[in-house]
């Protein structure tokens, strides 16, 4: 996992100071690092990409307005994603949707992969050809991965984005989504199994 938010754009306290001072280059760097992930995260909650983009845009305005009040009790990324979550929840609520992240009813796709003694029914393939650079059916492997993530149910998608992509601390992700660490691990695993299933179809 990728770890700290400040990676490549300097120390977090310095980053916060520059954001508060209205430094456009710093804002662009942080926008570049997080915006697409925020939209991906919000889309799982509000269910339309256009709405998710609006919510994320609104969240960025809040981030910049309130950055002076950021006290460093969580990571900067954790704080920003919490703002996105709150905005998305409010919007979902207004649209009559409610979202929980316990993953109830979200299964994994390996249920039928084993025989009665827990052995593989079909031997997994050796993925020699699956690389980030490869083009399959006119799209790069990374585009196929993105498409698979778009179809994940909300709880799996949220954990994959926050923990598996943005590298937030486990405790932070759990507090944000109101789930246990065990639950978070199961959701991350299921999300990866779903993406693996999509890639296996390309192999």
């Amino acid at each position: 996992m990728r770890g700290d938010t400040g990676q490549g754009i300097g120390d977090e306290a310095e980053l916060v100071r520059k954001l508060a001072a209205g430094d456009r280059a710093t804002f662009e760097a942080i926008y570049r690092k997080h915006n697409a992930a925020m939209v991906r995260f919000a889309t799982g909650i509000v269910k339309s990409r256009a709405t998710a983009e609006e919510v994320t845009q609104d969240a960025w305005v809040s981030v910049l307005k309130n950055i002076g009040g950021f006290e460093g009790r969580s990571s900067l990324a954790g704080w920003m994603f919490t703002i996105v979550l709150n905005k998305a929840r409010t919007r979902a609520g207004r649209d009559g949707r409610s979202v929980s992240f316990d993953g109830a009813g979200e299964d994994d796709n390996l249920a039928a992969a084993f025989d009665g003694r827990g052995r593989w029914k079909d031997m997994p393939e050796l993925w020699e050809e699956i690389t980030a650079e490869r083009i399959i059916a006119g799209r790069s492997v990374l585009q196929h991965v993105n498409a698979a993530i778009e179809t994940l149910p909300p709880a799996q998608r949220s954990v994959l984005v926050l923990r598996g992509q943005q590298g937030l601390e486990a405790a932070e992700v759990c507090a944000m989504l109101g789930i246990t660490e065990g639950n978070m691990r199961v959701l991350l695993h299921r999300a990866r199994l779903a993406v693996r299933g999509a890639l296996d179809g390309l192999a």
């Binding site: 993925w127 699956i130 980030a132 492997v141 991965v145 993105n146 984005v161 890639l199």
Partner: peptide
Amino acid sequence: ITRDLTEAVDE
């Protein structure tokens, strides 16, 4: 590979 590609998408 799945984990690495998932991270790579974000980067």
